[in-house]
Design a protein around this nucleic acid. Structure first.
Length: 257
DNA sequence: ATGGTGGCCCGGCCA
C-alpha cells in the first residue's frame, strides 16, 4: 500500500500537476494540504476518473485538506473535535484499506512572538489528544501532512540561518516529539537515517536549485506499519517544471498485516 | 537588512 502526502499550495492552480503525479506514482492513498478550496469547488470528478474516491474539508480561501483513496474511503471525520480548534479546515481523517489515515496541515506559527505560535503548539497537542480519543497505537495509523516543523537540524539546509525562527524552535520540536511519543514513527527518517533530503523549498531566491529546503512534510506511522515499510521516497521531480507547488510529494510503501 | 516568488483575488495577506 502506497501512502503519500503533498502540500499542493492551491489545488485549483495545481490540478494538472496532481493528475500527472497520480498517473505515474499511482499512490493508493494521497493526503493533500492547502487545497485552498471550498468543498463545493473540490474536483471529485477529476479524481474519480483516475480511480480515486475523495473526501475534502475546506472553506475556501485558506488551508483545506483532502484524502484520495483507491483502496476504500470510509468513516470520514473532519476537524480536531474541539470547539476552539475546528476553524481553519486543517484536518481530515478516513479509513483507507485498513489504515486510519489523517491528512493534517499544522499551523505555520508565523513567528516566535506571534499569537499564532502558541496556537501552533496547542494544535499539535490537540492532535495527540484526538489520536487518543479516536484510535490506538496498536492499530495501523498514518498521520500524514505538512507539519511546519523540521524535526532535527539535519532536516534544514543550514540550521544557523534559522536561529530565532519558527519550524526549528525547541518547543515546536518538543510538540512534534510528544505527538510521536503517542506511538508514531517518522517513516522516511527511519528508513534513511542519514539522508539530508527536503520536501519544501521557498519559491524565492532560487532556493530549490540551491538546495535550500526543509523536510517538514512527514508520514508518521504506528509500529505495525513501520515494521512493514519497504520503501520511502521524497519525489523531487514534482518540484521541477511548470507551476510546481513549493512542496513535493512524500510517500511510503507498506502493508497491513 | 531587505527582498526575493507565488497563490489568493485585485490591495494586501499569507507562506
Amino acid at each position: 500500500m502506497r501512502i503519500a502526502t503533498w502540500n499542493v499550495n492551491s489545488l485549483t492552480a495545481r490540478l494538472p500537476r496532481v493528475e500527472e503525479w497520480l498517473g505515474y506514482a499511482r499512490p493508493d492513498v494521497l493526503c493533500m494540504q492547502e487545497t485552498k478550496q471550498a468543498d463545493a469547488a473540490f474536483p471529485h470528478g477529476a479524481f474519480e476518473a483516475l480511480g480515486y474516491e475523495s473526501a475534502h474539508h475546506g472553506d475556501g480561501r485558506w488551508n483545506g485538506v483532502a484524502i484520495l483513496s483507491r483502496v476504500g474511503l470510509a468513516d470520514v471525520a473532519t476537524g480536531l473535535g474541539s470547539s476552539d480548534d475546528d476553524e481553519g479546515t486543517r484536518l481530515i481523517a478516513a479509513d483507507c484499506g485498513g489504515v486510519r489515515v489523517l491528512s493534517a496541515y499544522v499551523p505555520n506559527g508565523r513567528a516566535l512572538d506571534d499569537p499564532h505560535y502558541p496556537a501552533k503548539l496547542a494544535w499539535l497537542a490537540r492532535l495527540r489528544d484526538l489520536l487518543d480519543e479516536t484510535t490506538s497505537p496498536d492499530r495501523p495509523v498514518a498521520v500524514c501532512g505538512d507539519f511546519n516543523v523540521a524535526p532535527e537540524d539535519r532536516d534544514v539546509w543550514d540550521p544557523g540561518e534559522f536561529a530565532g525562527m519558527t519550524h526549528v524552535s525547541p518547543p515546536e520540536r518538543a510538540a512534534l516529539a510528544a505527538l510521536e511519543s503517542w506511538g508514531l514513527v517518522d517513516a522516511f527518517r527511519q528508513r534513511y537515517p542519514d539522508d539530508r533530503l527536503f520536501s519544501w523549498w521557498d519559491y524565492r531566491g532560487g532556493s530549490f536549485h540551491r538546495h535550500r529546503g526543509m523536510r517538514i512534510d512527514l508520514i508518521l506511522v504506528t509500529e505495525v506499519l513501520a515494521r512493514n515499510t519497504t520503501f520511502a521516497l521524497i519525489d523531487r521531480q514534482a518540484r521541477k517544471g511548470e507551476k510546481p507547488s513549493d512542496h513535493t510529494p512524500v510517500f511510503i510503501d507498506t502493508t497491513v498485516d
